Amino acid sequence: MAYVINDSCISCGACEPECPVDCISAGDDMYVIEAESCIDCGACANVCPVDAISPE
């Protein structure tokens, strides 16, 4: 089950460098996680200051 970023994302970028498989990138309005590449480690969710990342 991949992690997802919800509308609470403030585009701070804290999650992107934490991803060990580089599946997080800046989208138009917020960061997005490429579900096919996500390894469900949760590293991104642990650093999100607004709790915008959770398991799908």
Rank of each mutant, 00 (worst) to 15 (best):
D28P: 02
V32N: 12
I10P: 13
I24M: 03
A43Y: 10
G27A: 03
S25H: 04
P20W: 00
D28N: 10
C48A: 04
E56M: 12
I24C: 01
S11Q: 12
E34M: 07
A52G: 05
S8N: 11
V50E: 15
D51F: 06
I24G: 01
I53G: 10
C48I: 07
G27V: 01
I5V: 13
C19L: 01
C41N: 11
C48W: 11
A45S: 14
A45H: 04
C48S: 09
D40N: 14
D40H: 11
E34Q: 14
C44I: 04
S11K: 08
C48Q: 13
N46M: 13
C19G: 00
C19A: 00
D51V: 01
D28G: 10
I53N: 07
P55V: 09
N46E: 15
C44A: 11
D22E: 15
A43T: 09
P20N: 02
P49G: 04
A2V: 07
S8K: 15
E36V: 13
C9H: 13
E34R: 11
D29I: 11
C23Q: 02
M1D: 08
P55R: 07
D22L: 10
D29Y: 14
A26R: 14
Y3R: 03
D29M: 10
S25D: 06
I33Q: 05
M1W: 10
E34W: 00
M30G: 01
P17H: 06
P55T: 02
I53R: 07
V32L: 14
C23G: 02
V50H: 07
D51A: 08
D7H: 07
A45I: 05
S37R: 13
I5F: 05
C19D: 00
C23V: 02
C19F: 02
G42Y: 01
I24N: 03
A2W: 00
E36M: 12
M30I: 09
P17A: 04
D7C: 04
I5W: 06
Y31I: 01
D51L: 05
A2L: 02
V47I: 14
G13C: 07
E56R: 15
A52T: 04
G27L: 04
A35L: 10
G42W: 01
Y31W: 15
S25C: 12
I10Q: 15
I39C: 03
C15N: 09
I33A: 13
I53V: 14
S11P: 06
E34Y: 04
E18I: 00
C12D: 15
I10H: 09
I5A: 04
C19K: 03
C41R: 13
D29P: 12
A52Q: 07
Y31G: 11
I39R: 15
V21I: 05
E16S: 09
E56A: 14
A2Y: 00
C41G: 07
N46S: 15
C41A: 10
Y31S: 12
C23Y: 03
A52D: 04
I53A: 10
D7K: 09
N6T: 10
I39Q: 15
G42N: 06
E56Y: 10
I24E: 05
M1A: 08
C15I: 01
Y3Q: 05
D29L: 12
I10T: 14
P49D: 01
D28I: 08
G13F: 01
